[in-house]
Amino acid sequence: MSENESQFSEFKSKSGFRRILSAYSYSMQGFQAAWRNEHAFRQEVMIVVPGMLIAPFLPLPALHRLALVAVVMLLLIVELLNSAIETVVDRISLERHPLSKVAKDIGSAAVFLSLVLAGMTWAVILLPLAKAYFRT
């Protein structure tokens, strides 16, 4: 390859508004693929969406409401990244390999930690609200 030839992917050639439209389209395709192919993603969406709809209306400071929404969105982000890692590992080979297992297990650990963070955040923010509600 000569110095003048691009060493980048042909998919990186779009610019401007066309790139934004393409990125949006690819993102929607990613959501569709995750929904269609990833059971864990569907389960998490079923848990996350009600929380995201309820959080803005809770009698809490704005930053607390934002934190409630942010941690559940983070959970979905980590799940999507984990699914992408698993898909790439499977694309390389469907054979069992210790490094494939390590990659998938690390991705799963990341999802677990984000789930724990979300649960702890919701508990810390909502427990005082629940205690105050049930005292009256």
Rank of each mutant, 00 (worst) to 15 (best):
M73D: 08
S9H: 03
K14Y: 10
L74Y: 11
A130G: 04
H97I: 05
P59C: 10
M28I: 09
Q7K: 05
L127V: 00
S22E: 10
N82Y: 11
A110L: 14
S6W: 02
L80R: 12
G107N: 08
E44P: 09
V49N: 12
Y24F: 09
P98N: 00
I54E: 03
S27V: 08
P56K: 15
L113P: 09
S100C: 01
L60C: 13
L127S: 00
F11R: 00
V88Q: 03
V71S: 03
E3T: 07
F11S: 00
A34M: 05
L76R: 09
G30L: 01
L117V: 08
A34Q: 02
Q7L: 04
V45R: 10
V88K: 10
N82S: 14
A109W: 13
L115W: 05
E86Q: 05
F41I: 02
L99D: 07
L99E: 04
S93C: 05
L66M: 15
N82L: 10
L21C: 09
S9W: 06
V45L: 13
I54R: 05
V78G: 03
A110N: 13
P59F: 10
A40W: 14
R65M: 13
S6M: 02
M1R: 06
E38L: 12
Q7E: 00
S15G: 03
V111A: 02
L74Q: 10
F57L: 11
A34P: 00
F11I: 00
R19D: 03
V48K: 11
S114F: 06
A33Q: 06
R65C: 12
A123D: 02
